[in-house]
Amino acid sequence: MKPAILEVRNVTKAFGGLIAVKDVSLTQYQGEILGLIGPNGAGKTTLFNVINGVYKPTSGEVIFEGQKISGLPPYEVVRRGLARTHQIVKPLNEMTVLENVTVGACFGPQNLPLEAAQEVAAEVIEFTGLGKYADVLAGKLNIALKKRLEVARALAAKPRLLLLDEVLAGLNPSEVAKMLDVIRAIRDQGISILMIEHIMQAIMSLSDRIVVLNFGEKLAEGSPDEVANDPQVIEAYLGDPEMAKRILEEEEA
């Protein structure tokens, strides 16, 4: 088996009385795509926030490439080679797409000087299909392009592990297809990917393994087939009609 790139050990994150993530442990191996699924409010995004240092875990720790990263601020985490995207996109509105991506390249693990970063950014923009928009202000992009910008920015850091938070949500089928191509291409570069996704078809086909969260706790873990047939998982999803509806809607769209 390949060595682990990321280990989440017994992480708990509480907001006041609300326990958003409860004693979750998981391991991601190098080069794999690990899917993270679960109903709305299951704590997936919160777990991402703990992994990349936006939140300090209430207890537990996060190990990246053998080193403890929990407790470090986000800018230290990304400098070690772990980048992420946001579910609610955060474009730097009044800056161009090129500038946005340059930020990612400049301040990532390679700590590139400005000009070198601009070159990297230009490449990444081509790679993610944003080439036409390099000089457009990020605030002017539509949602699909903003999602792609999120990915491009994270990718420009040249991370070894990339966290993707619902990069497919809100995209139409042709946009989804394009994004899936991008994700596969990223994997083919040897970058490990941990991704949250609600679109089942997509996550089932992409992931090597899947972890399921429910009410902050890990409910199941295994290959896509194992997880899809796990009665507990089915119940968790059926128990959440909202979610079932959303999946249906997305499938139809």
Binding site: N52, P73, Y75, V78, R79, K90, P91, N93, E94, F107
Partner: peptide
């Protein structure tokens, strides 16, 4: 304005949380 430092500052101006996640030592 033309430096890496300036780029980091602009990122902070636009969205400090995003900037920090992108690696800017805000």
């Amino acid at each position: 304005r033309r430096s890496k430092f300036g780029l980091g500052l602009f990122a902070i101006r636009e969205d400090e949380d995003a900037a920090v996640v992108l690696g800017v030592k805000a």
